[in-house]
Design a protein around this nucleic acid. Structure first.
Lengths: 296, 296
DNA sequence: GGGCAATGATGCTGAGAGGGTATCGATGGA
DNA sequence: TCCATCGATACCCTCTCAGCATCATTGCCC
């Protein structure tokens, strides 16, 4: 009792003739008749009323015909879907990224991606750099846009672009007009930075910049999100070292270049050996740089 | 590529272990592995990533698992439904009846039937006696409640009850108080009756009653429905001979017994040799008279 | 009414699908 | 390094399933 017998039965129901139905199934009538009889025996249900002159469906046969068509359509569709997912044309791509990337890079990547793969369900996960790596390794994400930390062998990474730390101060702050600042210019100022558990790379870059000049930052607040940091700076609660790419969102702060500003490589990471071919266009548009052509 | 391989794959996806999945399918691991490989080959899609240490689903496998569960559930449900329809517990019963029967017999039959076969979709078709016979023969109805005309060999009929013609006159009519009327009492009165093409039996009974007394009715109006006839009588447009069972619906007419009133047997007819077992409870409640116990 | 054509069922046969046993190869842990 | 685990492979056997030939029934036509 399988789909083959169901197909036989549908052919019979549509022709109401054993010989013609058998021909449609590319076989001869005797084994076809036996398959129908076997189907009825296995079901314990008479599906067709036969005489040597005509074949008619019983009510159970009518119902089984309707259901069989649906089952066979579902079966074929399942096979087709599997092939499409294997080709990366259908399926799902779970894409995680740092929250502050949502404002600049992500919209361009996404708009280009959906043009290339309109049938792929794109799940966007705004989260923190630390969680991106963890969820990539756990198989909960297919791709992650984050800072390029130490290269893990279980992750394949592609460079996207290089960000750069800069200082942000409230509008009207004494340092707002500087051409470039050094660590000692920040002596006595409260610094706002995300904790290392949220973004080890970013936190490391911030502390590294101070350390390189022999100083320690006076970190007073530790929010998780860069946008929160900008708000706190705007409110006059301190200054911060943030990726340059996110300044400009907040009109009430001013960015100032840093002396020997640390570079922050942004990479797209995905699990090594991923079978999700829906990932390929995303990696490809980053590899060939074509995502930059999309208007921001 | 059939449902068996789908079941194997679902077992594998749920256990992620070839040996355990094979055991669940009551077979040994080698042929099980071959079936999975054959499924992948036929689909042209890798569904699982194997190593000697672990088995994981590919994205295509995840999708195929989801679809396979739905297809298998549909398959099993189709088989179950076929059995239920064959037993008459599920399915459809298309029941046609004369419009005026809807007011008395049909509600009782239906309320008892749905208590016995709650899962059967009961399609109620109000129509005319002539059409009932025609649609029963065409296989468009499973049962019909109508006048028992000449017994057709293609139809099985069960007597339901015997109706009787009576005269209806407008309230306040000269004949309204009569104990019994004869055909000659109606001389000069306009008579309203349905045409023969709508109900040959009823029309025959009306004309037969007049003819038996050597008279011809002066039939002035020919509506199709008995309820329309009652309205026309109530409006003073004439008198009519109608089945006694329908009087009482219309307060503005009076029924008067006929001398030698023709009897009108009401029968339930169904196609001879019908395979619709959902019909059985309906026939049974009429055969044993239990439908009369239902409050009208 | 008898022959005939059409149609579904049945008997027999052969090829192949599918399952069992034994075993191999790879891999990770003790 | 040895061993246990686990999926793959080789080989064999059984039984399913399709083909061929034929039968049984039934309606049709001369």
């Amino acid at each position: 009792m399988d789909t083959r017998q169901m197909r036989y039965f549908v052919a019979l129901a549509e022709t109401l003739h054993f010989g013609h139905a058998a021909a449609r199934m590319n076989m001869t009538q005797p084994p076809f008749s036996r398959q129908i009889a076997a189907l009825e025996r296995d079901l314990g249900v008479q599906l067709v009323e036969r005489s040597s002159r005509q074949v008619v469906l019983t009510p159970a046969g009518e119902r089984f015909l309707k259901d069989s068509r649906a089952v066979l359509a579902g079966f074929d569709s399942a096979c087709r879907e599997a092939r499409l997912v294997a080709e990366g044309l259908h399926g799902e791509l779970r894409f995680g990224f740092m929250m502050h990337a949502a404002h600049s890079i992500v919209p361009r990547l996404v708009s280009r991606y959906v043009a290339l793969r309109p049938e792929v369900r794109l799940t966007l996960v705004e989260t923190t750099p630390a969680e991106i790596a963890q969820r990539l390794l756990a198989g909960e994400l297919d791709a992650g846009l984050s800072f390029g930390a130490r290269a893990l062998p279980q992750l394949d990474s592609l460079p996207v672009f290089t960000d750069r730390l800069c200082l942000v101060v409230p509008k009207g702050h004494a340092l707002a007009g500087c051409r470039v600042v050094q660590a000692q210019d920040l002596t006595g100022l409260a610094v706002i930075a995300a904790p290392a558990r949220v973004s080890p790379t970013l936190r490391g870059a911030v502390e590294g910049w101070f350390a390189a000049q022999g100083l320690l930052p006076d970190i007073r607040f530790e929010p998780q999100l860069q946008t929160t940091i900008l708000r706190l700076v705007a409110a006059g609660l301190g200054v911060a070292l943030v990726p340059a790419s996110i300044v400009g969102e907040e009109a009430s702060v001013r960015a100032v270049p840093l002396e020997a500003a640390p570079e922050l490589p942004i990479v797209l990471s995905s699990p090594a050996g991923s079978h999700n071919r829906a990932l390929e266009p995303l990696r490809e548009m980053i590899r060939d740089g074509s995502w930059r052509d999309v208007p921001a």
